[in-house]
Design a binder for these strands. Structure first.
Length: 784
DNA sequence: ACCATGGTAATTTTT
DNA sequence: TTACCATGGT
């Protein structure tokens, strides 16, 4: 890897090995290469020992990728130790597992990690305890509010009082939140947010621990810095400054940086995780937080053709909240193909088109990826590819570790290390069925609530006092023995595969599946076998049982990405950081992309950044497609082309739609002959039932679309044109109309997509927030 | 304790 | 449309 490959800016980024550095790296500007080279340079130039380097990446996959690249660039003798390449979360786990006891809190080093599923079940249990109807507040909603509060450092009480007026909903959430934290602590469990919160707390409070990590990590690098949230930022600061958070605002002395560096790499335009608390203001404030920051801009793009870059630049510059930046092609001569546009009749047609083209590209040896906004869109593409016998790799959805049987076995393993893990316990106490039912579980739950214990700790008393039926009693005893048996194996430090095998056998799990003798059970057995194999492999890599279980908890969807896959299906989010010769951006429709839940203001800008990310994934060829109608919740609905289509300059687009009847075709005919498209041969949309609203192939809407295109190309800043059917006339329901719902009471229609009985309505209810309905199904009553 | 039924809600995005 | 959950019956 000759350094001659690097351009001057990249070289500067690599060679600046002291002090704070901010690298503004546009898409495809070789930022991974820069980080890799930086690490290699630090080591090869003996600036520091390898293990004094910490690089935080977004996914395990990226970390691993970087690791192998670094290793391949160094010779044996130079790798006297290894740099730590990790995600924020695994870094947190690593530090906590060593030091959590220094926090003098309720946690021990054996804490377990609650995944989303566990969290939801815990919240459900709390809702039940508080007898809150979980329809007025779903576990999911409660969790996202709790997570929101936690990430802002708000206690339940602070959260409750945070808004100027306390709503009923807020009260409910606060009530759940109040129980949530102690319940986690009792179970010696942390959720994803806690991992970061607790490690920050630890490093803040424990001077020696902070000193240790500050002393150890001299050079810290953070990838995808625009997606960092405040807690992650605090974590990085604690390590690099070695100072408690109370002195956050004090200036850092120049001498502090001797032999140290903090290098953050990011791109505002690719900030797409605000829903998870990430805040690009952090990157904007970096220079203020770290005076003397050296800033390097990488705008040279090595990935995509000029056509694609042009499209990307034009789209993203519509955003207001950004810093001016333009991607320049490293090879401006090679113009590249135009962007290929295809409008299909329906979702199936879109998928069929993509599959056909994918096959075509495959014949030329080109690999493709289909990018969509939501995972639900993947189904049609899977089907059409399968029909054609094209193998594909899908990222997201159910991963191996999400399978019920795998989770069950993992739950046994978690119990073996931390029997107080309530969620693991309630997951497998009757799995396989051993006669412990609701009644028994309720008794245990009562006990644990009354005494402030975990379910496991509540068991002895229940057994001794014979509080349950004799049948359940013996079942409880058996279960206890199974778990104690596993605990002993852990204490005896049996090998990882042995413990995993024991969990599958002694629990009776495998036997129960064998007796089932169904194909399904057969498949599950295979998965369990695979888990055991994974354990064998993990052992070979010197992983402990704890590593193994942590790994399962922290594995992410994007880790499923296989670089050698010829066809990859994934969401735009998962595609961040990846590149493909051929990219299909699918479902470019209002309500899908941009998503209906993010149709204005900052949210819309984030959608646009998402669009920018999608466009810039393409190296050679970019397809943009949308359907005129598709099935949504079992309803056929008409789709309006995405505003993002309008934001890509027309001259960069080639229309592949059949019959010259596409939106673009209309737009063109308007350009040519001002206004006389007549009622030519638009593909008639089959109307469902008694659909009365306007259709999208009407002259009016074509005209509207065309006008929007003009508006966009003039880039009139703020004034995003409203989509025609979003605002006004919508059959029976109108924006602003007062309605009454039997559960939520009275509210106001705040958004209305489509018309008549198929219209999708957003109604905002005081105290409940916005709710979405389909007009014909919703029990909505109009209030004069 | 388990099953079946039915109602109901749901679709962002993820470490 | 599907998937999940809660309820009620056996």
């Amino acid at each position: 890897m000759p350094k001659a490959d690097l351009n001057p800016q990249q070289l500067e980024a690599v060679h600046t090995v002291e002090g704070p550095i901010l690298i503004i790296a546009g898409a495809g500007s070789g930022k991974t290469r820069v980080i890799t080279h930086r690490i290699v340079h630090l080591i090869a130039s003996h600036t520091c020992r390898p293990d004094q380097i910490l690089a935080v990446t977004f996914t395990n996959k990226a970390a691993q990728e970087m690791k192998s690249r670094v290793e391949s660039h160094l010779n044996e003798g130079q790798m006297i130790s290894s740099p730590l390449l990790s995600t924020f979360h695994s870094l947190a786990v690593r530090i906590l597992r060593r030091n959590i006891d220094k926090l003098n809190g309720p946690y021990t080093r054996d804490f377990t990690i609650y995944d989303e599923d566990d969290q939801a079940r815990l919240v459900r249990a709390i809702l039940k305890d508080l007898s809150i109807d979980d329809k007025s507040l779903t576990p999911r909603q409660a969790l996202s509010s709790i997570s929101w509060a936690k990430n802002r450092g708000l206690s339940p009480i602070a959260y409750e009082n945070q808004a100027e007026y306390v709503t009923e909903r807020r009260e409910k959430v606060a009530a759940v939140y109040k129980q949530y934290e102690p319940r986690l602590a009792k179970a010696n469990a942390m959720d994803f947010d806690d991992l970061l919160i607790k490690v920050v707390d630890l490093l803040d409070k424990s001077g020696p621990t902070r000193e240790y990590y500050h002393g150890r990590f001299r050079h810290v690098m953070i990838d995808e810095f625009q997606d960092t949230n405040h807690i992650q930022y605090d974590l990085a600061r604690l390590i690099i400054t070695g100072l408690p958070l109370s002195s956050k605002d004090k200036a850092i002395e120049q001498s502090h940086w001797s032999g140290r560096s903090l290098c953050v790499v990011g791109d505002l335009d690719q900030s797409i995780y605000s829903f998870r608390g990430s805040d690009f203001n952090i990157i904007l404030g970096f220079q203020r937080d770290f005076p003397g920051t050296r800033t390097v801009r990488l705008e040279q793009n090595y990935r995509s053709t000029p056509v694609i870059l042009d499209a990307a630049n034009r789209v993203i510059e519509i955003n207001e909240k950004r810093l001016p930046k333009e991607l320049y092609s490293a090879d401006p001569q090679a113009q590249g193909d135009k962007i290929r546009y295809y409008q299909s009749y329906d979702g199936e047609g879109e998928a069929a088109f993509a599959a056909e083209k994918i096959q075509e590209h495959l014949r030329h040896g080109q690999y493709s990826a289909v990018l969509y906004r939501t995972n639900a869109q993947s189904r049609l593409f899977e089907e059409s590819l399968r029909r054609r016998g094209v193998p594909y790799n899908i990222v997201g959805g159910f991963s191996f570790y999400d399978r019920a049987e795998v989770k069950d076995i993992i739950a046994y393993l978690k119990l073996a290390m931390n029997p107080r893990d309530d969620m693991a316990l309630s997951r497998v106490i009757n799995e396989p069925p051993r006669g412990i039912g609701k009644a028994t579980l309720d008794t245990l739950a009562q006990r644990q609530a009354a005494e402030g214990l975990s379910l496991w700790e509540a068991m002895p008393a229940v057994i001794e006092q014979r509080l349950v039926s004799p049948r359940s009693l013996s079942a409880l005893r058996t279960f206890r023995e199974i778990i104690t048996g596993l605990i002993e194996r852990v204490l005896k430090e049996e090998s990882l595969p042995d413990i995993v095998k024991a969990a599958t056998l002694e629990s009776g799990y495998v036997q129960a599946l064998r007796e089932e003798k169904t194909d399904q059970a057969e498949g599950r057995l295979l998965n369990i076998e695979e888990l055991v194999n994974a354990a064998v492999e993990a052992e070979r890599q010197n992983e402990t049982l704890r590593d193994f279980v942590d790994h399962a908890a922290l594995a992410s969807d994007t880790d499923q990405y296989r670089e050698d896959a010829r066809v990859t299906l994934l969401t735009v989010h998962s595609a961040k950081g990846l590149e493909f010769p051929v990219v299909f951006m699918a479902g470019l429709e209002e309500g899908i992309f941009p998503h209906s839940r993010a149709s204005s203001g900052d949210d819309l800008e984030e959608e646009r950044r998402l669009c920018y990310v999608a466009i810039t994934r393409a190296q050679k060829t970019l397809y943009i497609t949308h359907a005129m109608k598709r099935w949504v919740f079992g309803d056929e609905s008409l789709c309006e082309p995405s505003r993002f289509l309008n934001e890509i300059p027309r001259e960069l687009i080639e229309d592949l739609s059949p019959g010259k009847n596409s939106w673009l075709g209309y737009a063109d005919s308007f350009t040519e002959q001002q206004r006389s498209p007549g009622q030519s041969s638009a593909p008639a949309i089959k109307r469902t039932s008694s659909y009365q609203g306007k259709t999208y192939n009407s002259v009016d809407s074509v005209h509207e679309f065309f006008n929007k295109r003009k508006g966009a190309s003039h880039r009139s800043g703020r004034s995003e044109p409203q989509s025609p059917s979003t605002t006004k006339e919508a059959g029976d329901f109108k924006v602003g109309l007062r309605v009454r719902h039997e559960r939520y009471g009275s509210g106001v229609v705040t958004r209305c997509e489509g018309a008549g009985e198929d219209a999708k309505l957003t109604v905002t209810f005081p105290g409940y927030g916005p709710k979405k309905f389909v007009a014909k199904h919703a029990a909505l009553e109009k209030v004069r």
